[in-house]
């Protein structure tokens, strides 16, 4: 789905990405974690070819039209410039399929709206919605692109707990269907619970990569995040609660 080989990027003489090698396979929901400034956003953008980087990214190597059908991107800034109806915003995702029949486009938009529970809002102007609802509309837009891979930059930022759970559960469900997700996440509790795999980034390097239980160790939390946390396997699954700064 996505293969990055020795991806390097320097900006203004500072190394932002320092030899990232990473692959995401089908059925994986990969959480990209790391402190602010570790290079998470840059990694996602470089993987998509939005910023030039050295090394190889299987996505960036594709021609733009093909890449649009290989991966959808959900950036952190939730920009919607014009006041369109919800349905029209979601339909923008179909720009990736210029040759598709109109009925196909309509069906894809309907599926995306239904999946995010936006059916009742479909004719509402998007600026009349709350921030959380707008985030859902943009997620539906990315789904309407119907790409096998979704790259999301902090998709849970600024959402209420229910919406955060919904978003992460959606990603986990996509992975369960055989698609792939690579999402940067700050909330390690959410990442631990919903991701199939965590990749830890520190100063532009991958310092850990594996199942959440194996990655989230006391030592790594101290070294990368400078925090102490409670981690437990419970009947509800893996639970992670940050406790204090070190």
């Amino acid at each position: 789905m996505l293969t990055l080989t020795d991806l390097r990027l320097a900006r203004a003489g500072r190394t932002v990405l320092d030899g990232i090698t990473l692959s995401v396979g089908p059925g994986e929901c990969v959480g990209l974690i790391g402190p602010n400034g570790a290079g998470k956003t840059t990694l996602l953008r470089a993987a998509l070819g939005l910023i030039p980087a050295q090394g190889h990214s299987s996505l960036a190597a594709l021609p733009p039209a093909e890449r649009a059908r290989a991966a959808a991107y959900l950036p952190q800034g939730r920009e919607i410039a014009w006041d369109m109806p919800v349905e029209a915003v979601v339909a923008l995702g179909r720009a990736a399929w210029p040759g598709a029949a109109r009925s196909e486009d309509r069906a894809a938009v309907a599926r995306a709206l239904a999946r995010l529970g936006l059916d009742a809002l479909r004719h509402r102007p998007v600026t009349a919605l709350s921030g959380g609802e707008q985030a859902r509309v943009l997620l539906a837009r990315a789904l309407a692109q119907e790409a096998p891979l979704m790259l999301a930059d902090e998709p849970t930022a600024g959402l209420d707990p229910a919406a955060q759970i919904d978003a992460m559960a959606l990603f986990a469900a996509l992975a369960a269907e055989g698609r792939s997700v690579l999402a940067s996440v700050h909330d390690l509790g959410l990442a631990a619970r919903h991701c199939t795999r965590l990749v830890v980034l520190k100063a532009g390097r991958v310092v850990a990569d594996g199942a959440p239980r194996a990655v989230l160790t006391e030592k790594l939390l101290a070294e990368v995040f400078g925090i102490r946390a409670w981690i437990g396997d419970t009947a509800e699954g893996l639970v992670f609660q940050p406790l204090s700064r070190l």
Partner: peptide
């Protein structure tokens, strides 16, 4: 069509195939 895609910003438009 590219102008429509640009509604969601340059990054999103680019990842939807707009050059």
């Amino acid at each position: 069509r590219g102008l429509d895609a640009l509604t969601l910003g340059e990054d999103v438009a680019a990842t939807m195939g707009v050059r």
